[in-house]
């Protein structure tokens, strides 16, 4: 987990330096704010990963000499099929179209989105005993 965190942190440090130089040279607000956002995108998860990497159990994927037996067993539970992403996608498109053709498609889209939300939660509970 150290390498992952470091990569993000390096990006954060670079963006922070560019942000400071850019603000100092240009006094331009929009670019500085976006560079600040990019800095935080590197720093926040990067710092979290580094903090967490000291507390977690060592992982076989971080160990260059790990054997395959070290990583054997359950990886995770994965949904095999689910119709709800499709329903949510259609709902999102209908909500989006409301921005073009008037509000009448939005309620249908929100109903589909809510149905998808409930469906995903039910699905996870039913099969998510792992």
């Amino acid at each position: 987990m150290k390498v992952e965190g470091t990569v993000l942190l390096v990006i954060g440090v670079f963006m922070g330096a560019v942000c400071a130089i850019y603000w100092f040279l240009s006094n331009e607000t929009s670019g500085t704010m976006m560079l600040l956002g990019a800095t935080l995108l590197g720093f926040v998860p990067g710092a979290y990963y580094l903090w967490w990497s000291r507390r977690m159990k060592p992982r076989p994927e971080d160990n260059p000499s790990a054997s395959r037996a070290d990583g054997a067993g359950v990886v995770a539970a994965f949904p095999s099929t689910s119709v709800w992403p499709f329903v949510l996608g259609v709902g999102a498109a209908l909500v989006g179209l409301a921005l073009v053709f008037g509000l009448w498609t939005a309620p249908i889209g929100f109903v589909l989105g809510f149905a998808a939300l409930l469906g995903v939660i039910r699905e996870s509970r039913r099969g998510g005993a792992v």
Binding site: R68, A69, G71, A72, G73, V74, V75, A76, A77, F78, P79, S80, T81, E123, S124, R126, G127, G128, V130
Partner: peptide, 28 residues
């Protein structure tokens, strides 16, 4: 939900089961 396991050393028979899901349009 299906539980994905990572094989250890040799191909394990319980991993050889195929997916029993929908086919065709419904699969897509």
């Amino acid at each position: 939900m299906t539980i994905a396991a990572r094989p250890a050393l040799a191909p394990s028979p319980d991993l050889l089961e195929e997916e029993h899901g929908p086919t065709g349009m419904l699969k897509w």
